[in-house]
Design a protein around this nucleic acid. Structure first.
Lengths: 243, 243
DNA sequence: GACTTTTAAATGTCAGACAAATAAATTTTT
DNA sequence: AAAAATTTATTTGTCTGACATTTAAAAGTC
């Protein structure tokens, strides 16, 4: 691991990259302890604060974890699906909120991906997944539910659908697509009528999954996508020329 | 923005989280300048190195960028699709390499997602996308191509397929799935015979996309998935009881 | 007015120190 | 001898203060 002191970028960024490369390439393996901050400072010929800045960069990506004390230090972290999930959700959410991505574009991507899970989910969903979906449908039918709570339940429903495919990689990839839509969905006001329709489609999906009927799940997802986009479109219309 | 000095976690982590929350919630908007490090140190009642560690954490996630000089400082960064891509690829790659994800699982996820793009790509692909795909197919047919180069070209081919859907959100989500497979694919030795078969299927995909025939694209992708999994399976077999 | 120089403000880096946590080694007590 | 308490060494976490470097604006000069 070497750094180029001539380079224009920050030393801490260079050091972080050097260590990151070592991890990605397998030179440093999971749970391996890195040299102490003092030793790293020596190796890279920089001060300890600079090394620490580099380590914090890596910690922010969950690539390392640190422990204090006699046997402490920085250790290569096994990136858990959980950590990967939350990073993906943060990144996806920010990406959508900062780049004027149209609702249609995001919605299209989300449903395209979700439909990719549907056949697998129809094949493999457990009773547990089904129970989660039914429970969320029940919650969505409660009167007096806020729009935010309705959206959150919607996300939980769709996550159960995705998780039903029993493929952790797929669940991970979808987490961003589904959760990042929530802020966009929150702009929609769900009337009693529209909630009813959504619940109807959710039920249709749950029923079809129970029957392991992939085609009907797909059809219901298409319907749901169309309906959601219509709702968003109406909101946009009403905002353009209000009452 | 407040932090709790009682909390057990690092001060720099708490400060980073406080600022991150402010960005995600929209309290801090794109291109807005954060207070200087000295001012932040004052506000949070910590020292400047601690503030700097927090800022480096945020920089590692591309949430802020820093500039030196008189009008410099830390600015809220507009998360570009490019930045989001690379983060996703790094995370996905590490996730797969560190968690003993089976080739089958990763492969299934990848092709499920890719097939989700196929209909859109058949509808919208430009001549440019097609040209890229043809060029990569041509490259793949070159004799003397290393396995790594063949894999890289394979990735480029599939990226063109995904990009053909003309949905940046979809491209972003797929980037991880497609690129993260590359290290796994690199474990396969591509014989002349297997390359021939892959090229045949790639050509079939390109032809179908040219004809805007979504169904054939889908069928070819299924074939390709099956074939790829068979190849990986054979490698695993051969490794278990060698020659 | 155009060019050069100065200045001020900000980040980048360094050195050295102390605090706090933690496990191992040592000592004391039972 | 075993158990408990204490000490010690190591490492990260944090602070202070300083200087270097970069950069744009302000001041000065022709």
């Amino acid at each position: 691991m070497k750094i180029d002191p001539q380079k224009s970028t920050d030393l801490s960024a260079q050091i972080a990259q050097a260590i990151r490369d070592a991890i990605v390439s397998g030179e440093l393996i999971v749970d391996e302890r890195l040299p102490s901050e003092a030793e790293l400072a020596d190796q890279f010929q920089v001060s300890r604060p600079t090394v620490r800045e580099a380590l914090k960069r890596l910690a922010a990506q969950s690539l390392i974890r640190t422990q204090r004390g006699a046997t402490g230090g920085a250790f290569v972290n096994r990136l858990s699906f959980q950590d990967a999930y939350s990073q993906q959700i943060t990144t996806s959410t920010l990406l959508l909120s900062m780049n004027e991505v149209s609702f249609d574009t995001a919605c299209e991507a989300r449903y395209a991906l979700e439909r990719a899970c549907a056949p697998l989910s129809a094949q493999r969903r457990s009773a547990d997944h089904l129970a989660t979906m039914r429970a969320e449908i029940f919650r969505q039918a409660q009167p007096g539910l806020t729009d935010e709570a309705f959206c959150a339940s919607d996300v939980a429903f769709h996550r159960a659908l995705v998780d039903g495919a029993e493929n952790p990689v797929l669940s991970y990839q979808l987490a961003g697509a589904v959760e990042a839509m929530q802020p966009l969905m929150n702009m929609i006001t769900f009337t009693a009528r529209s909630r009813e329709e959504i619940i109807r489609l959710h039920s249709k999906i749950a029923d079809a999954l129970e029957a392991r009927d992939a085609e009907t799940v797909d059809a219901a997802l298409v319907e749901l996508e169309t309906y959601t986009r219509r709702l968003a479109h109406d909101v946009a219309e009403r905002r353009r020329k209000p009452a």
